[in-house]
């Protein structure tokens, strides 16, 4: 009796896998092209674009690395400091809003939420002139500060909701010990919210890593470029060497891949829980 339905079930499962793999194939296809083209010289590249081809030009990766290593260094600096400070500031702010009522606390919190309504592009120009007038053009510090400012709203909002769900007893226990607020944040909030903090960290890291317009506007010297601007400038050269260019694209992707491998479990869980909805 059970043989026919069982076979049908297997068929159904296979059909689902086939559908998903079909979509995944196309999603990964650009990455495949990037990887195999990074090992070709221009003749091979023009000859056959689709398949890997010997001899493999590993030197392309060296050329690509030399071309973008400064951009990567700049981007890493901006991302690391930007994300760390974003989290430090937003977690303390979220903690204050979650645990205390004080004069103006509602107004201030709504003022923070109102930032979500603002259209970034609408204030792009005044932001640029502000940085210019402050003498902050062409500096990584401005990018770090902007990254922190842009991350505050989402992080405070998500963290506040999260902190409000932490059982009150935990806080009470620590305050009897006479811990200061910062100590409470360190000993209760941060250990309790590891997965949400790392999800926010990764989202902010990706956002900062991908930021393109502000770096393009404020960076004047080529050695100050971040990755986005740097890759654009490589791409617009005339006699393009495709192999090294593709190798540079690969290298530009590696840091995020490494971070992802180490945080995969937390990240997928955090995103899937739907806690982060912007």
């Amino acid at each position: 009796m059970s043989a026919a339905p069982k076979w049908k079930n297997v068929q159904q499962e296979l059909a689902k896998h086939a559908g998903i793999l079909f979509v995944l194939f196309f999603a990964f296809f650009p990455l495949y092209i990037m990887l195999q083209a990074s090992l070709k010289d221009n003749a091979q590249f023009g000859n056959n674009i689709w398949l890997p081809m010997a001899p493999y030009h590993w030197a392309n990766w060296l050329t690509g690395w030399l071309a973008i290593k400064d951009f990567i260094a700049n981007t890493v600096i901006v991302c690391v400091f930007g994300v760390l400070l974003t989290l430090a500031f937003s977690i303390t702010t979220a903690y204050v809003f979650a645990r205390y009522k004080f004069p103006g606390s509602n107004v201030l919190f709504y003022m923070l939420l109102a930032v979500m309504m603002m259209v970034n592009v609408a204030s792009l120009v005044p932001l640029f002139t502000l940085l210019r007038d402050l003498g902050m053009l062409n500096s990584l510090i401005s990018l770090i500060l902007l990254s922190i400012a842009n991350g505050q709203v989402m992080c405070v909002y998500v963290m506040k909701n999260f902190i409000e769900d932490i059982p009150k007893d935990l806080f009470d226990a620590t305050s009897i010990d006479g811990a200061t607020d910062l100590q409470v944040v360190r000993s209760v909030v941060i250990p309790m919210s590891g997965s949400i903090i790392s999800t926010l960290a990764i989202l902010r890291f990706i956002a900062t890593w991908n930021d393109f317009v502000m770096p393009m506007l404020i960076m004047r010297d080529e050695q100050m470029y971040t990755l986005g601007v740097g890759l654009m400038s490589l791409n617009s050269g005339y006699d393009t060497q495709w192999g090294p260019l593709m190798a540079a694209y690969c290298i530009a992707s590696i840091p995020l891949v490494i971070i992802f491998i180490f945080t995969m479990r937390l990240f997928v869980k955090g995103l899937s829980s739907g806690a982060v909805k912007g």
């Binding site: 500031f89 702010t93 609408a122 204030s123 005044p126 502000l130």
Partner: peptide
């Protein structure tokens, strides 16, 4: 404790918006 957040948000979000 909330000063750093609000300083940055006012300077880099509110001020440009109103200036716009």
């Amino acid at each position: 404790l909330i000063l750093p957040t609000f300083f940055l948000v006012f300077l880099f979000r509110y001020y440009p918006a109103f200036s716009g």
